[in-house]
Write a protein that binds this DNA or RNA. Structure first.
Lengths: 215, 215
DNA sequence: CTTAAGCGGAGAGATTTTCTCCGCTTTCAG
DNA sequence: CTGAAAGCGGAGAAAATCTCTCCGCTTAAG
């Protein structure tokens, strides 16, 4: 693959992630083209249709996500610290794009499902370990963490993103929120949230699966 | 005002809030019409242009928001509980719409600014009281709370909203996150987030103000 | 029961979006 | 350095979407 082609692909993928997050998966490709600073032909040449683009973007993000999970598991001794690291990394990748895109029902691709499963397993292991150390609330599951990461890292409308040009506010808010997910110790009055049911990754997938076959 | 007109207005306003949150302030009015289940003429008859709609929506939400703040202040003895109640109420109203709309630069209307200021003052009082009880972290300001409420209550793309048909998950996550905003007591190991600077409401306004006069 | 206010659908006109053709530029192997 | 193949961007036609109005029917309220 030629060097300039690689560059274009990266630009398009980055732009697509932002635009899809801001405007939804059916945003005009035109916007992506403009944000990427490439000509329309460059996009259409590589991706014959919208789905091809979505597929490539998903694969890209999932791969990076999985490697983030592995890094987190390898670097931190403490399981909760590893979870924390992973959530931050996921937010940096704007995992929301991967998830929403992945689950919009477009992807039946076996290879992607494989990557997804592998990433999910790695993270699940991390979370179980954190549960066992007692630092992570038992009623907080992977679904909760994923949702948290999606919500806090999603681009905001109305220029509010200017509040956080370098992402430091995002990470600060993530840290604060993560503190709310720690298990209450016996004498800690802070945790006022009642007990609940952990949200699993499978819950997310089920929810996002288009009700195509239903009815 | 005739009863069916009142009903139409309510439908349109509710639909507009959702659509603006999902697609941004320049979403097609057509979508709003469709979601509201009314004819296009019904919208255009009441609102000659987009701005009129935005203005009415903003006023509606801000008024309700202010009354939520007052209720919270009146009902709860504990200041932190009042803040908590207010944040939940704000999320129910999808405050995000009010804020984004307010701040997208459209509103120069004196009346709206007045309502906004009144609402902000009420909330600010609540927050200061919560700071003084020592239960709310000093480095968490109104801007942080507003942002949190916006982020957690914003509609999600890709069918993920099906996870939470009745809003209970939203409130659960809010509670968890709010627990992260409590002040660390001397022997509490949970709060790992380092100290930071509180985000004020003014910060939000400044950030969102369109750089119209700039340049 | 009258009457005026309000409603929704059809659709013309304007705008936006998709997608391709083609001449110019960049990469890279030899 | 040079040639050839791969890649690029802009212009713009065709299709799709969006805006906004006219008008005959329905509903509310006195």
């Amino acid at each position: 693959m030629r060097a300039d082609a690689v560059r274009s692909r990266r630009r398009i993928l980055d732009a697509a992630r932002e635009v899809f997050l801001e405007r939804g998966l059916d945003a005009p490709l035109d916007l992506i083209v403009r944000r990427a600073g490439v000509g329309p032909a460059t996009l259409y040449r590589r991706y014959p249709d919208r789905e091809a683009l979505v597929r490539d973007l998903t694969g890209d993000l999932l791969t990076r996500l999985e490697s983030a999970a592995e890094t987190a598991a390898a670097v931190d001794d403490d399981a909760f610290a590893a979870v924390r690291r992973f959530v931050h990394a996921a937010a940096d990748l704007r995992m929301g794009a991967a998830i929403l895109v992945l689950l919009e029902g477009l992807v039946v691709d076996e290879e992607l499902v494989l990557i997804r499963t592998r990433a999910a397993n790695t993270v699940e292991t991390l979370i179980q370990a954190a549960h066992e150390t007692g630092r992570l609330r038992r009623d907080v599951g992977m679904g909760d963490l994923v949702l948290l990461s999606i919500r806090l890292s999603r681009p905001l409308p109305g220029g509010l993103d200017r509040l956080d040009p370098d992402g430091s506010l995002l990470h600060r808010h993530l840290d604060l929120a993560l503190d709310g997910l720690t298990a209450a110790s016996s004498d800690e009055p802070a945790a006022t949230a009642g007990p609940g049911v952990p949200l699993t990754f499978a819950d997310l997938i089920t929810a996002a699966a288009r009700p195509t076959t239903a009815g």
